[in-house]
Amino acid sequence: MGKGDREKSARDRIKEQQAADRKREQRRRIITYTTAGVVAVAALGAGILWNMNRSKSEEAGANLAPITVVADAGVTMGNAGVSKPVIDIYEDFQCPACKELERVSGSTFKNLAAEGKAKVVYHPITIFSEEPTRGNSIRAGAAARCVKDGKQWMAFHDTLFEKQPSETVEGFKIDQLVGWGKDVGVTAPDFEQCVTKQQHAAVQQSYSDKVNKEQNLTGTPTVKLNGVEMDNEVLFRPSELREAVLNAAK
């Protein structure tokens, strides 16, 4: 073996060594990167599930507590003899956050009342002052006041939130309101006329103004537990909402 050959093979060995090092280094990098990626995606998935789970709605019970509608006041839902704790719900049929509250926690309010754990009072009010939202809200609120039967009122109330129009268009039109009332089984013969003539539009407005002032509302939805405003963090987490109400009953 000549001198040149020896040198060459030494160079080759070094080169091979370097190539092997590079390969090992690259493999390590890929493993590290993949691990970090998997951990990040797992954290993302777990976080999203956790966040959705916190706002998971309760299964609605089969029965509702008895509901009493008073034309120029709130609508009371509760078993006979249950007078506290009182949950006052101030909501506007046109307000998106109220729709969200009903979607997330509506079943909890109903269940608590049905279980005799609370008396729930709904106050459908109008908080908007500009069109088209004000008109939408007044029409819907006035129409709801035309429903005198408790069960039908609740079904109509739920439907209104479900069908809530965008805040940017005219909605809750008279014929829609009449149609939805019939869909949910409103049977009162004067219902259609009451809605069409918007017989309770003035009451809807005056009641809203009165409640707004008396209760110092800053917006809707506002929910008060025994007169104390509840935190949104609790309101929109059904399990915490239930716990807060049960604690108040103690």
Partner: peptide, 13 residues
């Protein structure tokens, strides 16, 4: 995150 409903409502808006 403190108020999950807000971001749901905001996205819908």
């Amino acid at each position: 995150i403190g108020n999950p409903s807000d971001s749901v409502v905001a996205v819908k808006a």
